[in-house]
Amino acid sequence: MTDPTRVFRKLAYNNRLANLRLHNAVGDLFQGEWEAKRTSFFPSIRATLNHILIVDWFYVDALEGGTLGPKAWENQEPFEEIGQLKDAQRLVDERLIALCEGLTDGSLAAPVEVHRGTRIQLDRCDDILSHLFQHQTHHRGQVHAMMAGTTIRPPQLDEFIVGDDAAARAAEIFDLGWNEDWLMR
């Protein structure tokens, strides 16, 4: 039997794991590296990680039925310090996991209202989730590339939660309070 919600659950957990790895690595940067001007879509690691966060707020709120809309962008860089950003990202990651844990076959096709200010975008839940996961991956990749120009080696982010990679994530899975058997369901 196939469970169409499984891939979204796994993507939500993978998102949390990737953000944990990236934020831990960024937390080890030397003074000035986090906010230093770099070549990318956004001008710094700090700006890019803040962008990921506010877009997560925007879409997770919409997926939860909220009306945050463009208010998410009122402050383009709400966090100057990595510790504060890491905490805020963890909270929205946990909301996304909870949302994906609650998905059903029917809810994947349910319409989601995305408040765009002057209009309401109406798209399927699975399409919004796919877009969100693509957005996160895209910008984490940019941070990964920017980190290559710092004193800290970029972490591995291209792992998907497959059984063969269990040893590579064992410490993080323990820290997160997760269980491999449960993740692989």
Score class of each variant (00 low, 15 high):
A18F: 04
A18W: 01
N19F: 13
N19E: 06
R21C: 05
L22S: 03
L22W: 01
L22P: 00
L22M: 02
A25T: 01
V26C: 10
V26P: 07
G27A: 07
D28A: 13
D28L: 10
L29G: 06
G32A: 15
G32R: 14
G32F: 15
E33D: 07
W34E: 09
E35C: 13
E35D: 08
K37V: 06
K37H: 07
T39D: 02
T39I: 05
T39V: 03
F41M: 06
F42Y: 14
F42M: 15
F42R: 11
S44A: 13
I45G: 13
I45R: 14
I45S: 13
I45L: 15
R46K: 08
R46Q: 09
R46F: 11
R46H: 09
T48P: 09
T48I: 04
T48V: 12
T48A: 09
L49G: 13
N50H: 05
I52W: 07
I52P: 05
L53R: 09
L53M: 09
I54P: 01
I54H: 06
V55A: 09
V55Y: 11
W57I: 09
W57G: 06
W57E: 11
F58E: 00
Y59D: 00
Y59T: 06
Y59W: 12
Y59M: 11
A62Y: 00
L63M: 03
E64P: 02
G66E: 03
G66D: 02
L68R: 11
G69H: 05
P70D: 00
A72T: 05
W73R: 15
E74D: 11
N75Y: 02
N75F: 13
N75K: 14
E77V: 08
P78S: 10
P78D: 10
F79C: 07
E80C: 05
E81F: 15
E81R: 15
I82E: 10
Q84F: 13
L85C: 12
L85H: 12
A88F: 15
Q89H: 15
Q89E: 05
R90L: 14
L91T: 09
L91V: 04
L91C: 07
L91F: 11
V92H: 08
D93H: 12
E94A: 12
E94V: 05
R95V: 07
L96G: 08
A98K: 14
L99I: 08
L99H: 07
L99F: 08
C100V: 00
C100I: 00
G102N: 13
D105N: 01
D105K: 04
G106K: 07
G106N: 12
G106Q: 05
S107D: 03
A110N: 03
P111I: 03
V112N: 02
E113V: 04
E113F: 04
V114L: 01
V114S: 01
H115A: 14
R116H: 02
G117C: 05
T118S: 09
T118D: 01
I120P: 00
I120D: 02
I120A: 03
Q121G: 10
L122P: 00
C125V: 06
D127H: 02
I128K: 01
I128D: 03
